[in-house]
Design a protein around this nucleic acid. Structure first.
Lengths: 140, 140
DNA sequence: TATTACATGATAAATTTTATTAATTAATAT
DNA sequence: ATATTAATTAATAAAATTTATCATGTAATA
């Protein structure tokens, strides 16, 4: 029994192939796919799976803290199995969404919290521009 | 002739009462309203105005850099006539969206840019938690 | 004031997400 | 293994937000 199965069972949630497929896909990609992308990708293995199941599973995974939802300014949400608060980069050229690791941003919440009267609990940081590949095309 | 009228005219865009009302509303509020909120608020002065006009005007204002679009994780966008890159705060309690002024975040783009191979051009920073009002209720 | 091109308003359509419900399936006990 | 039951799925409809269409209206210019 793997990790995800036990987490679901602990909470009285059923372990279904659809659920495992969705969370495993998210864990094995760095592409931050949308519900639609997840649906299309898994439809080869699960040809009868409904898009509603994808949404319901994502909602469930979100509520138990196994995935986070990203909003990069498109018409739809993207999903990330890395639930740590880490910055994302969105490329104007190819629209890819990458993780952006920069330790300078690690304790931003604490730093900002010192100067404000708000109770800060979470942060979402999005950076926009051109990825290394697209940068070449732009600067040429 | 005010500032906005001249900007529109310079670009060959017509100056209409609807357009002025929308941009003026955005300039005079700190509430970061959605298209729907703008529509409802202005419908007392412009009872025949269409929601499509609001969307089209916002799209136009965005394209000429007079407003920026915010994505705080709701189902709809919010709009801000302050186009400087400044962080926003979203309250889990009352869902209000405030500006969060913190000079520590001013040159984040430059700082992060030093450590990466991406060409960074813009940033959107969202902080979540409880506003001073809601904080009282939560901590009691 | 007339002309013309652009903007508006009304509506339909598209897109994304959520709700509904009967049928199916995982988990548990037998 | 099998039956039971409660949750999940799949299909579909519905809701919500945004975009497109097009006839009418209006701002800008002559």
């Amino acid at each position: 029994m793997d990790d995800i199965s036990s987490i679901l069972k602990e909470r009285g949630l059923k372990v279904t192939p659809q659920r495992l497929a969705i969370i495993n896909m998210l864990k094995n990609t760095k592409e931050h796919p949308s519900a639609e992308t997840i649906y299309k990708t898994l439809s080869s293995d699960f040809p009868t799976m409904s898009l509603a199941t994808v949404y319901k599973t994502l909602e469930m995974l979100k509520s138990i803290g196994l995935v986070q939802e990203l909003n990069v300014g498109e018409g739809s949400f993207r999903y990330d199995a890395n639930v740590n608060s880490h910055p994302h980069f969105i490329c104007y050229g190819c629209n890819r969404v990458d993780d952006l690791d920069d330790s300078a941003l690690d304790d931003l919440l604490g730093e900002v919290g010192k100067h404000t009267d708000y109770l800060l609990m979470d942060q979402k940081l999005y950076f926009y521009g051109y990825c290394p590949d697209c940068k070449k095309k732009v600067t040429n």
